[in-house]
Nucleic acid binder design. Structure first.
Lengths: 336, 336
DNA sequence: CTGAAAGCGCTTACAG
DNA sequence: CTGAAAGCGCTTACAG
């Protein structure tokens, strides 16, 4: 492959001058620049980013950690939209996207992985990630970091993150059902790990309390963000004669699982039992009955997270920027 | 940051010996290796991949070009499953995934982009990509390449690719409708660019011909792989009194668009008009009526493409390996 | 088994 | 405005 030295030889200049000409330094004669660029073109010169990064310590690459221990995988609509918007947003700013997929390396340290790869910043999507905080925390002091839909348990006051306002959204969803006359609302929650999952339970509880409805622990079940698990949980709730007149699931997929379970037991949705989901994936509006759900601005979340990251990379500062995006109720048929 | 020299100083050995010890060269004393590794650990040493790649010319990175000029974007279920399986497959082999997202660079040469980034191989997902072949072809001689769901117009005999057997699948889908008694089948095709789109038209035509049904050009319309466009095309076909008793859409989304158009015109699916889609995205089975469609093995496609690529990287050969995956008919309610 | 030296392809003070 | 030199952090013949 042609390198900078070949150009230097061809035009009869030094390597340093060629480098500066190529990088448009102001102290280089414009004639010289022209000559160098032409030679570069003729020789089909391609810069070697590795060599450059080795010196400049920047790579124009954003890394993404995706923890898919959770049931909702990389190809779940919520996450694929996130990736899609990150890709587009950082792409416009001149960055490529590195997804840390290598399973063979020692994953005990996020910091070392980032350092090895020389990424300029990292986006962490660790929803439901079982990992001791300190393996992640050391990252915070070494390079710009933004979390989406997840934050570490400790130190989260000092870290950038973007998420839906899950507590408020769950409150709104629950209140929607209460206003429709329901008082025995089965909460099909996510898991025991994800912050989003906890917040959605909190919002549910607050809505009940503010409407003077006692919280019944029996009515809080875990569907593990999985359609099948939700199906089972709802089915067994019915079989165990647990009394409820509505379901609020923490994801649309779980809402579908719930509706299927009810259908198979000849219980009509929404006539007998109303159902509300969370996410508003594409399927929600096509489903029969069309699903009432909380619309998460997933594309926008990826966009904002990327912008925060790029901002912090550019300014080399540690400004803690957060964003909590409202999730809007989309009332369709499943809640009546 | 700690480098190899710091370790050398600490243990009182040369840089070369430390490097070899760290890389487990066989001609290094095992005691020495132990000592070096301990020191590396104590000092929190992290290798610099940039420096290594500069010499070894390998980066353990697979690049992915995604051409999203087409309506089905990066977050379309088919493509997100592809990415998901590529990520998992190359991850197990010790590779990271670089998605070329940078919009700021000169995109006239795929080769230069790959060279700059030093990827070890490339997966091209260029469905419906408008691009003169020669900008891509120069890639073929420079590094291992695999196409998914797309091939260049020329030189495609010499290139690795993985795709569904679209012609056969379209044949089967059409035959399914013919066997149900339909003879006036409206083909809602994709676009004028994608090979997959052409092949699905070919299969449709062949099925008609082999069943002695003349091909009616009026019955071939373009939905541009978009739900909305398909809606319009079907709506105007009805309004223009084009006579058809079934629809075969080249994607599930277009099938949904077709069904919605029919529903809004009070035409019943499948009683009045049968509809068959293509892809079998998650939504297909949840849709009402559940969609009859051709199941594409998208996850498997990404897997096979990755394996071919890794194979060619390992062997440093140019063996042309291809895979055509069968797409199976999934008969549900929309075809009756 | 270990080490000195060259070099991967670039950038960046510094001198002129 | 241009160039010689040092160096980024590593690997790899080669000599001993």
């Amino acid at each position: 492959m042609v390198n900078i030295k070949d150009i230097a030889n061809k035009v009869g200049l030094s390597v340093s001058t060629v480098s500066k000409a190529l990088n448009d330094y102001s102290d280089i004669n414009s004639e010289t620049k022209k000559k160098v660029r032409e030679a570069a073109k003729q020789l089909d010169y391609l810069p070697n980013v590795m060599a450059r990064s080795l010196i400049t310590k920047t790579s124009n690459t954003i890394g993404v950690f995706f923890g898919d221990q959770i049931n909702s995988g990389f190809d779940h609509p919520f996450f694929s939209q996130l990736i899609c918007s990150i890709k587009n947003t950082i792409g416009l700013a001149g960055y490529d996207l590195l997804i840390f997929s290598n399973q063979k390396r020692d994953t005990s340290s996020f910091k070392s992985i980032c350092y090895e790869r020389g990424v300029d910043g990292v986006i962490l999507i660790l929803t439901g990630h079982r990992r001791t905080d300190d393996k992640i925390l050391e990252l915070h002091n070494s390079l710009p970091v933004v979390y989406i839909d997840s934050v570490p348990n400790s130190d989260y006051k000092n870290v950038c993150f973007v998420e839906s306002d899950n507590e408020k959204a769950a409150y709104d969803a629950t209140e929607h059902l209460i206003k429709l006359g329901h008082r025995k609302i089965l909460k099909v929650a996510g898991d025991n790990i994800a912050k989003a999952s906890f917040d959605r339970i909190s919002g549910y509880k607050r809505a009940l309390q503010e409407h003077n409805i006692p919280v019944n622990k029996q009515l809080i079940q875990y569907g593990n963000f999985s359609k099948d698990q939700s199906y089972k949980v709802v089915q067994s709730s019915i079989k165990n004669k647990i009394d409820f007149d509505a379901v609020f699931a923490s994801s649309d997929l779980m809402a579908f699982g719930a509706i299927e379970a009810l259908k198979n037991l000849n219980i009509k949705v929404p006539d007998d039992i109303a159902v509300v989901g969370f996410d508003d994936i594409d399927m929600a509006k096509l489903y029969q009955p069309a699903l009432t759900t909380m619309h998460q601005q997933s594309y926008r979340m990826g966009e904002i997270a990327s912008q925060i990251l790029l901002e912090n990379i550019k300014n080399k500062d540690d400004v803690v920027r957060n964003a909590k995006l409202p999730a809007k109720l989309v009332a369709r048929d499943s809640s009546g």
